[in-house]
């Protein structure tokens, strides 16, 4: 076996690949089942963006908090939320991560430090400042990561949070997931500055831009700024440039894209292909090992869908439960 040239050991590399493959398989399965009419509501898929969530979450533990977005399945899986509970939630079942009350846009698992996907753009940033404040007050070395899309990065809540985190020197990392579009609107048009690094600078914190389809680039950049935040060095911004493989939500015809655009990004910017090729070429992991993972992940997702479909629906008395802790 060749010497490992990567910043992660073989087991960690396999783990990263498994996480990314799980996200991909989860999303592709939803894409198919949504088209069949099996899944209610709005579903926003993370396929194509797996390297970002995974490269960041490899540095976190359950005590670290993340605040996610409407496109949250990938963040959940990478943060360790149970895939069966997620699938059941998306199917509106009582075995779901939120007992069917939240659905795709609101999956949360506080025990894993996953403070929720969110239906309101920009809402995660103030919340994660609070999570980081709690960690700072407790002195437990926890960090907070908030994800925000290029579109949602124009929300007042996000911009105010940048300033607050800097002023309070909070252990926060603001991750801008720049996939070029907000719904159908181009980031190029909607974001007035050339680079998110300029925005970070304007708010008095370091900013880094990486190729978000390159797992290693994300992993290394995130590692450094997360370490810095953990050590009391304050907030930072990480921009991941990446691509969304499906529509804004399921059912979007994507006519705003240039002809051939999707085919091109799928061919040249598939983060899973990029990662596989790198580790195989380096001789660190064999193709067969990855294929074994693929088969296991496939079986896992298949089982999650089967279990979700078999699971009980929430019933009338659940409607009134859990509005308050006590009332």
């Amino acid at each position: 076996m060749a010497q490992n040239p990567f910043p992660l050991g073989k087991d960690e590399l396999l783990k990263a690949y498994r996480t990314m493959r799980t996200i991909r398989e989860f999303e592709e399965r939803l894409h198919v089942d949504f088209a069949k009419g099996d899944i209610p509501g709005f579903v926003h898929l993370y396929a194509g963006e797996e390297a970002c969530a995974t490269g960041i979450m490899m540095h976190l533990n359950d005590n670290d908090r993340i605040a996610s977005t409407h496109r949250g399945h990938g963040h959940c899986i990478a943060k360790g939320v149970d895939v069966h509970a997620m699938m059941a939630e998306i199917y509106g079942r009582s075995t779901g991560a939120c007992r069917g009350k939240g659905g795709s846009m609101h999956i949360a698992d506080l025990s894993k430090g996953m403070m929720g996907a969110n239906g309101i753009l920009g809402a995660g940033a103030p919340l994660i400042c609070g999570a980081a404040l709690a960690a700072k007050v407790r002195g437990d070395r926890g960090v907070g990561i908030t994800f925000v899309g290029d579109g949602a990065s124009n929300q007042g809540t996000f911009l105010e949070s940048l300033n607050l985190a800097a002023v309070w020197n909070l252990p926060v990392v603001f991750v801008v997931e720049n996939n070029g579009y907000a719904e159908s609107t181009a980031m190029e048009w909607a974001v007035s500055c050339d680079s998110y690094v300029d925005r970070a600078t304007g708010f008095g914190m370091p900013g880094v831009t990486v190729d978000g389809t390159d797992f290693f680039a994300v992993y290394e950049a995130a590692g450094e700024i997360i370490r810095r935040a953990r050590d009391g060095g304050g907030p930072a911004l990480l921009e991941c440039n990446m691509v969304r493989f499906y529509g804004h939500f399921e059912g979007d015809a994507q006519t705003y894209r240039a002809k051939g655009e999707l085919e091109a990004i799928r061919a040249s910017r598939d983060c899973l292909t990029i990662l596989s090729e790198r580790v195989i070429e380096a001789g660190v992991i064999g193709r067969d090992e990855l294929q074994t993972i693929d088969r296991e992940v496939n079986a896992l997702i298949e089982d999650a869908v089967r279990a979700a479909k078999d699971a009980p629906l929430p019933v009338a008395e659940d409607l009134l439960r859990d509005v308050y802790v006590s009332y």
């Binding site: 907000a182 719904e183 159908s184 609107t185 190029e188 048009w189 994507q254 006519t255 894209r257 655009e261």
Partner: peptide, 20 residues
């Protein structure tokens, strides 16, 4: 409003959405 035209700044169809 947001995406009430749609496709603004993008390379594809103009008026791509006409609202969500």
């Amino acid at each position: 409003g947001e995406d009430i035209v749609g496709g603004t700044g993008a390379q594809g169809e103009e008026d791509a959405w006409g609202g969500v």
